[in-house]
Design a protein around this nucleic acid. Structure first.
Lengths: 242, 242
DNA sequence: CTATCGATGCGCACACCGTACGCAGTGCGG
DNA sequence: CCGCACTGCGTACGGTGTGCGCATCGATAG
């Protein structure tokens, strides 16, 4: 009933096929979605904007992806593919597990939306890349002699996820403030000091932190992560047979 | 220009003050928001629905809360108030830390939106309740003799947060399916089996899990949590002086 | 060569969202 | 008694995810 966009269909109005254009594909959509998530966070990803970036309408995406949530699930598993897990080698199992956990942490910091999104979707529907990471970590722990590698995996990955999520959320806040991490911390100091006043133990910890404030904050975070990881690996080592 | 709702202001149309009605207050708003979050998750909380539950218009809430994000921050700190931390006592420090971590886990499971929300907001802006929990945990570790209680806190809480978030996300998925946890797992088995086929180590772990499937899943989750926590406490114990 | 068919892209529409703004009542200090 | 600060709310704006039906395409069957 309503007037169409092209009341008189004309040869000239017909779009031509552009074989150069990679066309819409699930891979391209997921790739571009990750780029948007990395750039502006999870609340900045909308199907309309994503479509626009791909020279497509918003609803065209639904031919390749059932729903926005499914798209995010795909993005999550995609970035898990960035985590390399070494083969169980002649070298120390601790070194191999450590490098894996650090790669995992790097991924949560490179894609700072990961933490919040996993909290919503969970690691329930295991994508192929997460399965691969798990399998290879299981191989690592098994070769080291652990009778229950799944337990070791759950413990280490929970820690890495929790710490990584917290770090990522912090870095997001820093970035939103438009300052460097050091600036942000310096500017936060007074109010933190005030919040902690009257709490004796936290004040002590705060004083220690202030003394360390001359160091690179990224290095301090890395050290904090390594400390906890070593605690866990020590605890696991006690459970090795013999 | 447009006709007003009440073109002729009348005495009879005037609302009367209802002193029984608790009126809108920040506390009431936060309390009701938590109730909605607990009931239907984070994406079901809208200012309009929250207003309706409080017999108020959506925008009335903004007199007491600057923004929806701020409201969520308040809700987060509010539920942290549910975590009791014992005084450092004569008893084992491990028992005290364990009870604290289990209370934290209980909170993440009782309020399953916590994990995803912390991933977005982070623990950056420390509310009073989180500060209290931290202070009391610091007291626990200090009394136990740890020279750097902050490190111990970061390690344990990262683990608890990561594991709790994962569990909560899983339980949310289960609940959405409308099945019990045991039913959900049973129904998931075939596709999980398939996903794991060809991965030798995961297949082993899967077989173990299947053998345990007769037990209460909630108990199995609790045991998994306790295992990792004990690993961490063992690792920390190694760092006690002497 | 033509008719048909499945796959793909897209405009429109719906219901809903957070929240800025300005008006309308209320209770209180002067 | 006036005026003012505070609270609630109706309206409106610019977004959101996505269901629906149509237009167009390449491949294949007759």
């Amino acid at each position: 009933m309503a007037a169409k966009t092209n009341p008189i269909p004309s040869v000239w109005a017909r779009r031509r096929r552009e074989p150069e254009q990679p066309a819409l594909s699930r891979e391209a959509i997921v790739r571009e979605a990750i780029a948007m998530l990395d750039a502006d966070g999870v609340e900045a990803l909308s199907m309309r904007k994503l479509g626009a970036r791909l020279n497509a309408g918003a609803t065209s995406l639904y031919r390749h992806v059932a729903t926005k949530d499914e798209l995010i699930e795909l993005a999550v598993d995609e970035v898990f593919g960035e985590i390399p897990v070494p083969d169980p080698g002649a070298s120390d199992w601790r070194a191999d597990v450590t490098s894996t956990c650090e790669a995992f942490r790097d991924t949560t910091l490179r894609h700072r939306w990961l933490g919040s999104v996993i909290g919503q979707a969970g690691l329930v529907y295991l994508g192929p890349n997460l399965i691969t990471v798990s399998e290879r970590m299981a191989a690592l722990f098994s070769a080291a002699g652990f009778p229950e590698p799944a337990r070791a995996i759950d413990t280490t990955l929970s820690y890495v996820l929790g710490m990584g999520t917290t770090e990522a959320a912090f870095l997001t806040t820093v970035m939103r403030s438009g300052q460097t991490e050091a600036e942000f911390i310096a500017r936060l100091m007074p109010s933190a000091q005030e919040a902690v006043a009257g709490h004796t133990f936290l004040s002590d910890a705060f004083a220690d932190a202030a003394a360390n404030a001359v160091n690179d904050p990224a290095v301090l975070r890395q050290e904090k992560f390594a400390y906890g990881l070593n605690v866990i690996l020590d605890g696991l080592a006690l459970r090795l047979p013999r």
